[in-house]
């Protein structure tokens, strides 16, 4: 199973990016073997609108089946759930901490988006 995590930096020790649509990048973490890859999100940082929708499609294409991020808005959430991706909201400091929380079963699957559109 692959988990996508929003990342404000370039490594697994970087801070968890609170934003989903305009997250700096994503880390795709493979729970089976602990390996991870890096997915750039530069393009969506500059999107005029609909960055969350665009990022959600990106995650869907990446093969991840779960997403850990700070917050999600209604549009991104709709795309993610329609694509069968479970969303987990976390306030962990770093990407690594967020993955540890997830592994330990400390995160609950979000039933709904938790912020308004245009949040950031």
């Amino acid at each position: 199973m692959i988990v996508a995590v929003t990342c404000a930096g370039k490594s697994i020790d970087s801070p968890l990016d609170n934003r989903f649509g305009r997250a700096e990048s994503f880390i795709l973490f493979d729970l089976e073997n602990g390996s991870f890859t890096f997915l750039d999100n530069e393009q969506n940082l500059n999107a005029a609108q609909g960055a969350g929708i665009q990022s959600a499609q990106k995650i869907a294409k990446s093969g991840a089946t779960a997403l850990i991020t700070g917050h999600t808005g209604p549009k991104a959430f709709k795309v993610l759930s329609s694509a069968g991706i479970s969303v987990y909201h976390s306030s962990a400091k770093t990407v690594k901490n967020a993955i540890e929380e997830f592994k330990a079963g400390k995160l609950e699957k979000a039933p709904n988006p938790d912020v308004e559109s245009h949040w950031a």
Binding site: A47, A48, Q49, G50, A51, I53, Q54, A56, Q57, A60, K75, K78, V79, L80, S82, A83, G84
Partner: peptide
């Protein structure tokens, strides 16, 4: 404008 999204088995329209 990201008004369309391919999500799973359908296209969503915003």
């Amino acid at each position: 404008f990201n008004a369309l999204a391919l999500a799973g088995s359908k296209i969503l329209v915003f």
